[in-house]
């Protein structure tokens, strides 16, 4: 973010989340993409931010409730008679 207009990098940074989530107008997206084409650092920030979000959303991060935890929960809620395996 050194050799470029500071404001453009700042503007991009401020809109980064919304850009990633696809919430910006096509005009603004085009402007951002124009800036990205000439700014290595902003491209790295965008790519690594996207990747960070991908990683936390990866299925391996979706830790299931352990069976013993589920069992204790159902007992605490006096629902033990419904404590059949989830898949049934």
């Amino acid at each position: 973010m050194m050799d470029h207009n500071h404001v453009n990098c700042e503007t991009l940074l401020g809109s980064l989340s919304e850009y990633i989530d696809g919430e910006l107008s096509p005009e603004l997206c085009r402007e951002i993409e124009k800036h990205l084409a000439g700014c290595d650092n902003c491209r790295v920030v965008l790519n690594t931010t996207k990747r960070t979000i991908d990683l936390v959303q990866s299925p391996t991060e979706a830790i299931p409730v352990p069976d013993d935890v589920r069992e204790r929960l159902f007992k605490r809620l006096n629902l033990d008679d419904y404590l059949k395996p989830k898949s049934q």
């Binding site: 973010m1 940074l13 650092n41 790295v44 920030v45 790519n47 690594t48 996207k50 990747r51 990683l55």
Partner: peptide, 23 residues
């Protein structure tokens, strides 16, 4: 807000990023 790290690790393979150490 200002980024300080500009290493592009986004292209690292999934098994590296989601290794035990990566997680």
């Amino acid at each position: 807000l200002t980024p300080h790290q500009f290493v592009d690790w986004s292209g690292l393979p999934e098994d590296e990023l989601l290794s035990e150490e990566g997680k």
